[in-house]
């Protein structure tokens, strides 16, 4: 099966500071791929380059075989869940989730909304506003909104931060169900390797903007590329 996402030699600098250095990555269809690293290692910048929100980077981004390097974000069919969810506070849950569904009929929107709210376990929340929901519920609404457009790729920026262990498990279950049941390909950025181990099919470890190791969780534990990875795994 061909890869869904292919990053080739992505390099990015802010002035004198090198943020990313020749990062290359491949994501298979239906995979959950985690990018792990300390704060400031460039993982969020990498995510934003894939989404098309960061410019000034060199290298190529291929999505489903197409070169999307210079394609604007609204044309890439990528869903993005921000770290603080970025739900529109003036819109209800229903309006947030169906926000991007232009050109769809009312019944299509209602059907999609009902389906996604059921998957996210938010059946009675359609008419509520974001500020009336808990943090975990807001995250699930943000996820539903990103999925409403049936994206080729789902990006999640630090989805596990600010969640308690039970909610983290729930989110991992949701992502796993999406990958197994709907073949949703996800790229997750996180600083917590434990969360990555529990949910990801593949993990890329970044240090100072460069890829240190890309492998399955099992191989990373058994064959860490260097001392840094070993230390990270031990943590």
């Amino acid at each position: 099966m061909s890869n869904l996402l292919s990053l080739t030699n992505i390099t990015k600098s802010y002035g004198e500071q090198q943020i990313l250095s020749s990062v290359s990555l491949e994501l298979g269809r239906g995979d959950i791929h985690a990018v792990v690293g300390e704060s400031g290692c460039g993982k969020t910048t990498l995510l934003r380059i894939v989404a098309g929100l960061a410019d000034g980077a060199t290298g190529r981004v291929y999505l489903d075989g197409n070169d999307v390097t210079h394609l604007p974000p609204e044309k890439r069919r990528i869903g993005l869940v921000f770290q603080d969810y970025a739900l529109f506070p003036h819109l209800t849950v229903a309006k947030n989730v169906t926000y991007g569904m232009r050109g769809k009929t009312k019944s299509e929107k209602e059907h999609t909304l009902e389906r996604l709210l059921a998957i996210m376990n938010l059946p009675e929340s359609a008419m509520r506003y974001p500020h009336e929901l808990s943090g975990g519920q807001q995250q699930r609404v943000a996820l539903a909104r990103a999925l409403a457009l049936d994206p080729a790729l789902l990006l999640l920026d630090e989805p596990f931060s600010n969640l308690d262990p039970i909610r983290r498990q729930k989110l991992r279950d949701v992502l796993r169900d999406l990958a197994d049941g709907q073949e949703t390909t996800s790229l997750i950025v996180t600083h917590d390797i434990g969360d990555a181990f529990k949910v990801a099919d593949y993990i890329t470890i970044l240090k100072d903007g460069a890829v240190v190791q890309t492998d399955t969780p099992a191989n990373i534990v058994v064959n860490p590329a260097n001392e840094y990875v070993e230390r990270l795994v031990d943590m």
């Binding site: 974000p73 921000f82 603080d84 991007g100």
Partner: peptide, 15 residues
């Protein structure tokens, strides 16, 4: 205005 609201809208296809 939070840049993330604008970027969210862009990701969802808005001009």
């Amino acid at each position: 205005l939070s840049q993330e609201y604008v970027e969210s809208a862009r990701m969802l296809g808005d001009s």
